[in-house]
Amino acid sequence: MATSAISAGALVNLQELTPSSPNFKQGASFRVTGKLQEYNLETAIAVIVDEGASLKIDTQHMKLNLRPGSIYQFIGELHIEPNNEAILKARVGRNVDGLDINLYRHSLQLLREFQTEQINTRTS
């Protein structure tokens, strides 16, 4: 059957969105998770961090009360600026304080292995 019109936000860690990563593509949809480091009310640009990596998030299309120090999850499209800096233009976002980050990372890895295995089984 046909697929949905909207792209799913692929689950990635912030470390996987560096310029050398295969994920670093203009317009690609991602779901990212990280601690809010700073937020500029005038520009609606937030910066989230996770394990030493950071990412700018454009939150202008969202109604979300952002608190530095809290953990957030955003889904949106990656916009790569001329200086090769990435910014995620968020469509939706959510405070996820209380998320077990260790469990999340392990589960994400397992989910990817499972998905790859299932798709390979289907195509073989």
Binding site: T3, I6, S7, A8, G9, A10, L11, R31, L111
Partner: peptide, 11 residues
């Protein structure tokens, strides 16, 4: 509406 679970979008 559409649900995005990280592996796809379900209409």
């Amino acid at each position: 509406f559409t649900i995005d679970d990280g592996t796809g979008c379900i209409p």
